[in-house]
């Protein structure tokens, strides 16, 4: 059930503004990627583009060799991509359980209500509550659970630890490790570079829409990426 993702010379625009310039990267089946960079570097654009939410792009994107449809969220979803969006963006007119149900798709896989509740037992306790009554960490778990319900091959996590306490961030990453163990590829966008790298095989850093660094993720820290991150020379 794992698939590969290949992006070749990808450029993307928001109206007149070019958000991505000639980005290329590859993700082997089951591999995970930490996507880092400063604010406005194009990380969110890349994730949203993969999900079909950014229609204006050039280049080539293939999933297991099949080209990705342009600007079509439904096609991206059935091709195996799911997004945990920045700010969670839960459906507040729906209960916790309904949020999970609405995330389900026609794709087969291990994730259903029972397995999501096993991963996040707290969601089972609060299954009839509205998302707005949950804590920030619980909301993030629900957002991950909702995305997993579609049984994706690649889970795209945008600003996964934004606004969460360190303790809760630990819990979220522990859950992501379990997800990864199930064979789901992760693409993690996080301000906390070391944490994201610890959860990934590969790290890609974006700077003003370009790839400024690309390497194995093991042991990479914010200090090591300083130049690629901010675009300034680290040598004095």
């Amino acid at each position: 059930m794992t698939i590969s993702l290949r992006i070749d010379s990808l450029s993307a625009w928001h109206d007149q503004f070019q958000a991505l310039r000639d980005v290329s990267l590859a993700l082997e089946p089951g591999q995970s990627l930490a996507l880092v960079g400063a604010n406005g570097a194009g990380k969110s654009t890349l994730l949203r583009l993969l999900c079909g939410l950014v229609p204006n792009w050039q280049g080539e994107i293939t999933l297991d060799g099949k080209p990705l449809a342009r600007g079509n969220p439904r096609a991206a979803s059935s091709a195996g991509l799911a997004l945990v969006p920045e700010g969670r963006l839960l459906f507040d007119s729906l209960t916790v359980e309904e949020n999970l149900l609405v995330g389900q798709s026609a794709r087969k896989g291990p994730w259903d209500l029972a397995t999501v509740y096993t991963l996040f037992p707290v969601l089972a306790e609060r299954r009839l509550q509205r998302p707005s009554t949950l804590s920030g960490g619980q909301q993030q778990m629900l957002a991950i659970g909702r995305a997993l319900s579609a049984n994706p091959d690649i889970l795209l996590c945008d600003e996964i630890s934004l606004g969460l306490s360190p303790l809760v961030v630990g819990e979220v990453y522990a859950a992501l490790a379990q997800v990864r163990a199930q064979g789901v590829s992760l693409v993690i966008v996080d301000q906390d570079v070391s944490r994201a790298c610890a959860a990934a095989d590969q790290v890609v850093c974006l700077l003003e829409g370009r790839v400024s660094h690309q390497s194995a993720a093991q042991g990479v820290t914010a200090a090591a990426l300083k130049a690629a991150y901010f675009g300034v020379a680290t040598e004095q």
Binding site: C51, L53, R74, P85, L89, F91, S105, R146
Partner: peptide, 23 residues
Amino acid sequence: TRFGRQVRALSDRPEIAELMGIR
């Protein structure tokens, strides 16, 4: 119902609803 869930999801956040495969 499932239809009602989709309707409420769509009313809350159309863009995310489309990500969930809602037509």
